[in-house]
């Protein structure tokens, strides 16, 4: 995003939450706190299915991975894709088809879905990065709508019904994923793998170049970086990870349906990321948990869900652009500077 006020907000939030350059002199105490937080988070995730309804937590994890993948583009490369549902839902169809019709191993099915989403991301990305900013958003939206129409018409997707009764199967032929706990830890493992990959990407030299492109693409070009390639690679990576989330979701709910490829789904992942905090690692996770919880809560009331979602969107854009995690990080960071 070229604008200075937003980008500085995003990047300051990013450096505050992430162990980046700015926090580097923060030394041993920070490190201990960070490790303690990671251990705490992991044990909470491990204990979650005993406290909460496992399918609910799995849903949160799938959407959290989806939002993290989306955040890799908007938060670190400054590219707003409005068509990520195509990768999420497209991969869900491929995974469901592989697991149900071809009877493949669940892990392999998800891998196929991920690969499909990555290839689709390559095609979409190659087209969309030819334009910038608002046009980029419109192009990704239009291309994903094309996938929606294909999903509606092609015979193997089952049209309005979707692919139902997808078997979860035996992981590596050994672990029965029909047991809720086994399925839960499998989903947790998939999520963690994706999350660690994003974490590594963001902190790699590649991630730094992405941030440079976000802050000032012209300058990155003048420094000799082929920004097109970096953006395309980031797009493919984001699409593939969104696909991994979609494929996993298809196994969790044993269903791949049109809902997953609608542009409303693309909007929902934007909201999760915006609400949690763009450009923060944990923001999308928090945002996803919030939106999924909200969806569950609203389903029990008579309130119309899109109206509430839309209202949150409006409020976030108007007064809460840092998001939950971004705002927290901003508060935490500004307090010590006042003490000094």
């Amino acid at each position: 995003m070229p604008d200075t006020t937003t980008t500085s907000a995003v990047s300051s939030a990013a450096t505050a939450v992430l162990p980046g350059r700015a926090a580097a002199p923060g030394t041993d105490r920070d490190r201990t706190v960070r490790i303690a937080l990671i251990v705490l988070g992991l044990s909470a995730a491990a204990a979650a299915p005993f406290v909460l309804y496992p399918v609910f937590v799995m849903k949160v994890l799938c959407f959290a991975l989806f939002a993290c993948a989306f955040n890799l583009l908007i938060g670190y490369a400054g590219l707003l894709s409005f068509g990520h549902a195509a990768f999420f839902g497209g991969a869900a169809y491929v995974t469901a088809h592989a697991a149900k019709v071809w009877g493949l191993d669940p892990a392999l099915s998800i891998l196929l879905g991920t690969g499909f989403a990555g290839l689709l991301g390559l095609v979409f990305g190659a087209l969309a990065i030819r334009r910038q900013g608002i046009y980029f958003a419109m192009i990704t939206l239009a291309l994903s709508q094309m996938i929606f129409f294909l999903a509606l018409q092609m015979p193997f997707t089952g049209g309005e019904d979707g692919i139902q009764g997808v078997p979860r199967g035996m992981l590596f032929g050994v672990i029965d994923l029909n047991r809720p706990l086994a399925m839960y830890y499998f989903v947790l493992a998939v999520f963690l793998a994706g999350f660690v990959l994003i974490w590594r990407t963001v902190h790699s030299p590649f991630g730094q170049v992405l941030k440079a492109i976000r802050e000032n693409e012209a300058r990155a070009v003048s420094l000799g970086y082929r920004t097109e390639r970096y953006k395309l690679l980031a797009f493919v990576l984001s699409a593939a990870l969104a696909g991994m989330a979609g494929g996993t979701k298809a196994l969790v709910f044993q269903l791949a349906s049109l809902t997953d490829v609608t542009w409303q789904m693309s909007g929902e992942v934007v909201l999760m990321t915006l609400l949690g905090g763009m450009g923060t690692l944990l923001g999308p996770v928090v945002g996803a948990a919030f939106v999924v919880m909200l969806g569950n809560y609203l389903a029990a009331t008579s309130l119309p869900v899109p109206v509430v979602i839309g209202a949150i969107f409006v409020v976030c854009v108007l007064v809460f652009r840092r998001g939950i995690v971004g705002e927290l990080a901003h508060r935490l960071r500004s307090r010590p500077s006042r003490d000094r």
């Binding site: 995003m1 937003t6 707003l80 409005f82 900013g133 608002i134 958003a137 409303q264 909007g267 934007v270 915006l274 899109p306 109206v307 979602i309 839309g310 209202a311 949150i312 969107f313 409006v314 976030c316 854009v317 108007l318 652009r321």
Partner: peptide, 13 residues
């Protein structure tokens, strides 16, 4: 992009 996001929210509402 914030204008796009705001009007998206309005459209949903």
């Amino acid at each position: 992009l914030y204008g796009l996001l705001l009007t998206f929210g309005v459209a949903l509402m």
